[in-house]
Nucleic acid binder design. Sequence first.
DNA 1: AATACGGGGCC
DNA 2: GGCCCAGTATT
Length: 365
Amino acid sequence: MDCNIDPKSVVINVIRQKLLDWYDQNQRDLPWRRERDPYRIWLSEVMLQQTRVSTVIPYYERFLKVFPTLSSLAEADEQKVLKLWEGLGYYARARNLFEAVKEVQKTYGGEVPSDPADFKKLRGVGEYSSAAVLSIAYQKPLAAVDGNVVRVICRLFMIEDDPTKSITYKQINTTARKLLDLRRPGDFNQAMMELGAIVCLPRSPQCFKCILTKECLAYQKGKAEELPISKKTRPIPTIEYAAAIIIKERHCLLHQRDRSGMLGGLWELPAIEKRNRKKIELEQCFSSLLRNPVKLKKRTSLLNHTFSHQRWKVYVYPTESSNPVPDNKNNWCWANAEDISALPFPKIYHPILPDIISRLQTHLN
DNA sequence: AATACGGGGCC
DNA sequence: GGCCCAGTATT
């Protein structure tokens, strides 16, 4: 495609070499940088999607202690995989990785395919992850363009258009391919990301320690911090969430959330969930949900929790003892205290679970 | 092309 | 309260 950013190849060569030299001297010592196993590189890239390095590190190490090899993960139980992902967010990543790893075991004999066409077919492997994993693990000459790279390139070449527009994104991608060092593609990709992560920051970029200020058009114009231009923000929906504690013989009724939706595959109390709606008749809703009359007692807890994209209002109601029998047995279970600690729950449940467990242990209800 | 998808850290 | 993070799948 036509690219009006056409820096002289001399500049390209200078940027490429400076960046690699800087990376060789200044890269952080991260767990996945010590690894050669493509499976481990892959796992790191999946965990790092939309997630900070500092958040990922403990999850990464814990995960690999339980599933040290691709084969061990391929033979795992999905609930245990989700439990290790608990709190990391974007749970589809865990389910997709699990499915993809089983596919690799079945179709590619347990070897992560090195052909980009094959690798990208796998669930959860997109343009970025494909380039990142294959360049790092197999030295494939693919440019990995993540949020860091977008920011670095927008600043280096003064791209003032919205990078989320596909035409602009193609320009950025073309530029990344021209910059790529074909002899050390994995290191070069990581160098770009590393610069974005520790020098070319979204806010307050540390230009005083950047080795590319002479080549950076945005810096020369004093506009580094303004780029890339940001997208418009979306309104945050409020989620009203009412949950019932239903206990029978030291077991608590739990429901597994639909795998395709939010917090898919995680467990929860029987709950009524409404977005941006008015009050609802809770007892009626619960009774209909459980195909059985439910008597609520006084609300015990109210949690307000604001995430990036949602504002949660959580109400928890103990119930009068009854014998509710959910329709679809597959997604329901009666869990004792031990079961509860083994099941994956959304983060919002962490303050509530101790209360539920103590109710089970003390015969309350 | 726009939206859904978690949770945390920082200003 | 807004922004952003080693993005991908779905609509």
